[in-house]
Amino acid sequence: MTTAYLILGFSLVAFGAMAVTALVWAARAGQFENFKAGSESIFDSGEPIGEPTDVFPGMKRSLLAGSPTRAMKGPPRP
């Protein structure tokens, strides 16, 4: 019993220390800055933001290309 509690206590402390270290590292390494760039890192000039990349086969590409918002939201409102 006591050994189990010792191990549990030890692992809690060790774990807490690792969590704090990770957090400090993340903050220092700039992981909490510039989230926008991170989320945009999967887009590039070939597949830019605003351009859908998947439709059913045979569907006209013009339906989406260039006017993604219309295709996504239906016909434009007057």
């Binding site: 019993m1 189990a4 191990i7 549990l8 774990f15 990770a22 993340a26």
Partner: peptide, 24 residues
């Protein structure tokens, strides 16, 4: 650092749900 994080979260449950029950 990423791997330390993976390891830390995982070892935590390993200690708690595998090793501690086995010892107890």
């Amino acid at each position: 650092n990423l791997f330390i994080g993976f390891f830390a979260t995982f070892i935590c449950s390993w200690l708690g749900l595998v090793l501690a029950p086995h010892i107890q």
